[in-house]
């Protein structure tokens, strides 16, 4: 299947390759002066418009690394640079807040810089998309674990963050909401945000991660292009053929690979299944809109 990394994006005006959202330089973290180091000498950068996966066994410091990237914790040694607008989904979201779902989301939207009205509107929209619209006015302590996780996810997505940090955010979500979150991640990356995530499911977004880091001991090592390039059951692609206005270029920043189509003024796009909705919406809402000639599942030879 076509790897939908940066090289595969069609845009020329998309975010520059050197666009670092956040960078750690020799960063280390321990929870107290007499406590052991959890991480040491971590030097890595997370680029805009990329998806970063962090792997490691339980208790190796995945959450610690994500908290450094989200700038929730400052490193005990070394430096962190970059101040993107950040949103974070914690591993466990507490239901003990004295708000309704929409009430809490509206407060968080304001903290993220939205007006109260925009925050409330987006809160409703995200709860609806995640399948929790019926619980908008339920007090958080009365929500099921899965629904309160949806609130945690909505909290992070409602303000279009430049850096999205997901610590096992899929855990507890139902299948439909997990799928929505996968797509939302793809949308954020396509929109130019950096996304960093940890998930216990090795197939989670497999093949879409631009960079994978593994933690062993207190070290973080980069291991790109192994697990994430391997084909897997969920890595389906979709081939989309479109006809554009005469001489028109494809909109910049689309995920996937693009090539000339069978006729003049047509293009053939091979995109990850995950990105297909996004690409179609982007093309159909362009002005003037593109004509979608065909959409079919990709085969092994489609690049």
């Amino acid at each position: 299947m076509a790897r939908t990394g940066r090289a595969g994006r069609t845009g020329r005006t998309g975010p520059a390759d050197g666009d670092l959202a956040i960078r750690l330089d020799g960063a280390g973290r321990r929870y107290g002066l007499r406590r052991p180091w959890v991480l040491r000498e971590v030097t890595l950068g997370v680029r805009a418009a990329t998806l970063t996966r962090v792997e490691g066994a339980n208790g190796t410091g995945k959450s610690t690394l994500l908290r450094l990237l989200a700038r929730i914790d400052a490193p005990s040694e070394g430096r962190v640079t970059g101040r993107p607008r950040t949103a974070y989904v914690p591993e466990r979201f507490p239901p003990s807040l004295p708000f309704t779902a929409v009430g809490y989301l509206t407060h968080m939207g304001r903290v993220h810089g939205l007006t109260g009205a925009a925050a409330a509107r987006r809160a409703h929209a995200w709860l609806e998309r995640l399948g929790a619209a019926g619980h908008a006015h339920t007090p958080l302590p009365d929500l099921s674990k899965g629904t309160s996780q949806k609130v945690a996810v909505a909290q992070a997505l409602l303000a279009d963050p430049e850096l999205l940090v997901l610590d096992e955010a899929w855990t507890g979500l139902d299948a439909a909401a997990r799928d929505i979150l996968d797509r939302a991640v793809a949308e954020r990356v396509a929109a130019g945000s950096a996304v960093a995530f940890v998930d216990h499911d090795p197939h989670r977004l497999a093949g879409y991660a631009d960079v994978t880091y593994a933690i062993s001991g207190t070290r973080v090592t980069r291991r790109t292009g192994e697990a994430d390039a391997a084909p897997r059951a969920t890595g389906r692609t979709v081939v989309v053929e479109v006809r554009g206005p005469h001489g028109a270029e494809l909109p910049p920043g689309l995920p996937g690979t693009a090539g000339p189509g069978p006729e003049p003024d047509t293009h053939r796009l091979v995109v990850a299944d995950l990105h297909s909705d996004l690409v179609l919406r982007e093309l159909l809402t362009a002005s003037p809109p593109w004509h979608v000639m065909s959409v079919r599942p990709g085969e092994a030879g489609d690049r």
């Binding site: 908290r67 989200a70 950040t86 914690p90 968080m108 903290v111 993220h112 303000a159 940090v165």
Partner: peptide, 16 residues
């Protein structure tokens, strides 16, 4: 009063 998980969300959005 703010539970730890929610504190993380706020700290990420606004800085700890």
């Amino acid at each position: 009063v703010e539970p730890a998980g929610a504190r993380g969300c706020t700290a990420a959005a606004a800085g700890p």
